[in-house]
Simulated scan of single mutants.
Amino acid sequence: MTIDVTIYHNPDCGTSRNTLAMIRNAGIEPTVIEYLKTPPARDQLVWMIADADLTVREAIREKGTPYAELGLDDPALSDDQLLDAMLKDPILINRPFVITPLGTRLARPSEAVLDILPDTHQGPFAKEDGEQVLDAEGKRIV
């Protein structure tokens, strides 16, 4: 299927790997942007966060990042200050963001990507940890 899908991916992240595999299971080869090597431009990051219906604070990754050391938990920080930190140190951008014609999602958990993919899944799908997400017909397991 030809559909324009972009994933802001971190190959070291299991959630990101599962999300990428689910996109491919739908018969789609996405544009993969390793955002730690090629971070989004500020306006693109602002747009992705807004289109995913998130706040800037909801789009920040805390685990495994310098979030606490940088004092980013300070509620007095503005969105601009938080965005500055995310762009300076892209590990602070939560992952994976996926953009499709059906919308933008921060795919956490990874199956959130299913909300913005066409129903073209090719058979069953299980995450790396064995959790079954799609049945033999490619339908979402609730």
Rank of each mutant, 00 (worst) to 15 (best):
L20C: 07
W47N: 09
G123L: 08
P66T: 10
F97V: 01
P101E: 05
D115S: 12
E131C: 08
G123P: 02
L114N: 03
T31H: 12
D73M: 09
K37N: 12
T38M: 05
E69D: 15
P96K: 02
E29G: 12
D89F: 03
P90S: 09
D135P: 05
D43I: 11
K63P: 01
P118G: 05
I91C: 07
E131D: 09
T55Q: 08
P96I: 04
A76V: 06
L87N: 08
P109N: 13
N25E: 13
M86G: 01
E131Q: 15
D53E: 14
D73W: 06
E111S: 12
A21C: 02
I49K: 02
R57P: 05
L20G: 00
W47H: 12
A26I: 12
V32F: 09
L106G: 02
K127S: 05
D53Q: 11
D129E: 07
Y35K: 14
E29N: 14
E29S: 15
G123Y: 01
Y35E: 10
E128D: 14
V46C: 01
M22C: 10
Q132G: 10
P109C: 13
R24P: 03
L45V: 11
A26M: 13
T31E: 10
I23G: 02
D74E: 13
A85E: 06
G71T: 05
V133Q: 02
A52P: 06
T120Q: 12
P40W: 03
G123S: 08
